[in-house]
Amino acid sequence: MTLTPKKAHDSLVQMTELVLPNDTNTFGNLMGGRLMYWMDIAAALACMKHCAAPVVTASVDNISFENPIKLGNVVHIEAIVTRAFNTSIEVHMKVWGEDPVLQYRYKSNEAFMTFVALDPNGKSRPVPPVVAESEEEKKLFEGALRRRQLRLILGGKMKPADAGELKALFYEQQ
Rank of each mutant, 00 (worst) to 15 (best):
M1F: 07
P5E: 07
D10G: 02
S11E: 03
E17M: 06
E17Q: 14
L18M: 14
V19R: 05
P21F: 00
P21G: 00
N22C: 10
T24S: 02
T26F: 07
F27Y: 11
N29T: 12
G33S: 14
L35A: 08
M39R: 08
I41H: 09
L45H: 00
C47A: 04
C51N: 13
V56R: 09
T57N: 08
S59Y: 03
S64Q: 09
N67Q: 12
P68L: 01
I69T: 09
K70P: 13
V74Y: 14
V75M: 06
I77H: 06
A79T: 08
A79L: 00
V81T: 02
A84K: 06
N86K: 15
T87L: 01
I89H: 07
E90G: 15
H92E: 04
H92V: 00
W96F: 09
W96N: 13
E98M: 13
V101W: 02
Y104T: 15
Y104M: 05
Y104R: 12
Y106H: 04
E110Y: 08
E110P: 09
A117I: 14
A117G: 02
L118C: 06
D119I: 01
D119T: 08
N121R: 08
K123T: 15
P126T: 07
P129V: 00
P129D: 00
V130N: 04
A132M: 13
A132N: 07
E133Y: 12
E133S: 00
S134D: 01
S134E: 11
K138T: 08
E142R: 14
E142P: 15
A144K: 09
L145I: 03
R146F: 07
R147N: 07
R147W: 00
R148W: 08
Q149G: 03
R151Q: 08
R151I: 11
L152Q: 11
G155C: 06
G155W: 00
G156Y: 07
K159W: 09
K159Q: 11
D162L: 10
E165L: 15
K167F: 12
A168L: 13
Q173C: 02
Q173N: 03
Q174L: 10
